[in-house]
């Protein structure tokens, strides 16, 4: 994977061309219905497969089915943070406004994924461990990740100037993404020291194909849900930021 300087230069040129808010607004408008439709189809089929088609687990019965929501949420929470940091870094380094907006739009989505992963993890913990909250390594590092999201959003919200807000929160996102693996492994190590040999949710002996297929479908459903919501949020952000531009005025008048 070597792109070279010329490749990077071309990529930046491409991003500046298609990253112009007006152009992005038009292009994304054409993609949006498709993304939304794919999301709905994947969710319906994933939930059908997960709730009816997949057999009950021989140890956990039907309780394990929360996995089909919990695990994709947990994956997305981490992926969204990496995406957030990547967008933020691109916006900070190359001064791409669209990347700033993508990062800003990703943060509440990622925080929601994290919160959903925490809530579903706790709901799953009740039948599994007999309590709502266990200081399990994964749950704990999800909690810290949630705090990182909250901090990012708080900083973003407290700075008026959009450019400074984007750059300041970009630095905190980059610092955060470097720290995420360190935090994750620290918490993991801390957990193994205090509670050796406890049951962890994802350390199943094997996962059967009939359970894996719904999980994969649900993961894609959440991914497309993220992309759809990201487009919606970014388009909204574009309209707010460009509210004085002529094309936005024309657009609003045409709709009215």
């Amino acid at each position: 994977m070597c792109i070279g300087f010329e490749g990077v230069a071309r990529l930046i040129k491409f991003l500046h061309k298609y990253g112009a808010p007006k152009r992005f607004y038009a292009t994304s408008g054409r993609f949006l219905p498709w993304f939304a439709a794919i999301t709905v189809i994947l969710f319906v089929s994933g939930l059908y497969l997960g709730l009816y088609w997949a057999p009950p687990d021989y140890q956990q019965g039907d309780a394990y089915r929360i996995m089909f929501v919990h695990v994709p949420n947990a994956w997305m929470s981490m992926m969204a943070y990496v995406a957030l940091a990547a967008f933020a870094a691109a916006g900070y380094i190359w001064n791409i406004r669209l990347a700033d907006m993508l990062a800003k739009a990703t943060a509440p989505l990622g925080a929601s994924f994290t919160l959903c992963a925490l809530v579903t993890g706790s709901l799953w913990g009740k039948p599994m461990w007999g309590t709502w909250w266990v200081w399990d390594a994964r749950l704990t590092s999800e909690l810290v990740l949630f705090f990182l999201y909250v901090g990012y959003m708080a900083l973003q919200a407290s700075i008026e100037d959009p450019r400074r807000a984007a750059h300041a929160s970009a630095i905190i996102a980059i610092v955060g993404v470097i720290n995420v693996p360190i935090i994750h492994y620290s918490v993991y190590w801390w957990h193994t020291l205090h509670q050796p040999a406890s049951i962890t949710l994802t350390k199943q002996p094997t996962i059967y194909l009939t359970m894996l297929i719904p999980l994969i479908v649900m993961s894609f459903a959440f991914m497309f849900f993220y992309l759809t919501m990201l487009l919606v949020r970014v388009r909204n952000e574009i309209l707010v930021r460009e509210k004085d531009a002529e094309w936005v005025r024309n657009l609003v008048e045409k709709d009215a």
Binding site: F147, L155, G176, I183, S186
Partner: peptide, 25 residues
């Protein structure tokens, strides 16, 4: 990052405490 930002003090704690977890552990 929070220089000249309203509510800076609480914001600093909010931003920094999650990053401190490995050192604390």
């Amino acid at each position: 990052l929070t220089l000249g930002v309203r509510g800076g003090g609480v914001l600093v704690s909010l931003l920094v405490l999650p990053l401190y977890t490995p050192v604390l552990i």
